[in-house]
Amino acid sequence: MSAADTSIARAPAGRPSPAPGPDPGKAPPGKPHGGGRGRGPRRDPAWAPWLLLAPTLLVLALVLGYPLVRLLVISFRQYGQAELWQGLPGDWQGLANYTHILTDGAFWSVVLRTLLFTLAAVTLTMTVGMAVALLLQRVSTWVKVLVNIVLVASWSMPVVVAITVFKWMFDSDYGVLNWLFSRIPGVDLEGHNWFTDSTQGLAVIVLLVVWGAVPFVAITLHAGLTQVPKELEEAARLDGAGPVKVFRHVTVPVLKPVIVMLTTLSVIWDMGVFPQVFLMRDGHPEPEYQVLTTYSYDQAFVVNDYDAGAAIAVVTVLLLLGVMAVYMRQMLKIGEVE
């Protein structure tokens, strides 16, 4: 949010000099790029883009920015239920909340778990999504329709319901999966609890997250694939490139912007996963199931240290920004090339 604030603040400064030189062919209406460079004075007033941006920025600043500032302030104070209910600001504690969290070993294991969880979920989502997208290009029409219906229907299943169904499927006493697996000769999973071992339990949760995320990725990638020029692939194949080479050197480069966008969004979404972990563990994740969001929630609503919860949230955003720094540059390049 701070970035938006500073840019708003800088806007008036930008007004006097529309800077015709350094940004060729961007602003002028209907100028063919390249050719339009410097043709005539700009008719766009400097406030025009800001006018267009105003509603979006207003909503974001109000409903997200303002609470965010509040969150930030709380993270520097002593803030519990008493302060909340009596409308007190709370005592200023400086960085105490942060030092408390950052020196807590439990916090770092939560960070590590969250990163591994995200890595696993994003990698799987992207791989499966890509595989499905590639498959969709190669299957008969009726299979394609079927797969699309499955994708679409799973996407539209409310998370709450998906969680209930998964929990039920994996139940140790009356879950259908243990029963199914036990039909396989040599496998006896009757009464097996998938959540005893947190690695296994987290794997189930990753599966749930991936299951929910694949449709969006697969559908998008499939659409992207249909736009990879067949001539290019054909040519590469004629040059003797195998399918793997064609994929690596022709398909992936063309799809790169889509892949970057999907990966970025997936990282953000998977790191922000909350109900999947929270509800799969009946609203009280054990210590070995905590990820950053549930940990922050616990601090805020279980221990009623809203300050610590806020500080964890702020750290989460900083972590995400760190993780995304690389991608951010890639994302920015989209649309900058012309």
């Binding site: 139940d171 140790s172 006493d173 009356y174 009464g191 609890n193 959540f195 005893t196 009946d282």
Partner: peptide, 17 residues
């Protein structure tokens, strides 16, 4: 000898089995 990691939320379901 049931599932030792479950809580009691679904005890009545398990008992019913």
């Amino acid at each position: 000898h049931g599932d030792k990691n479950k809580d009691d939320a679904d005890r009545y379901i398990v008992y019913g089995q």
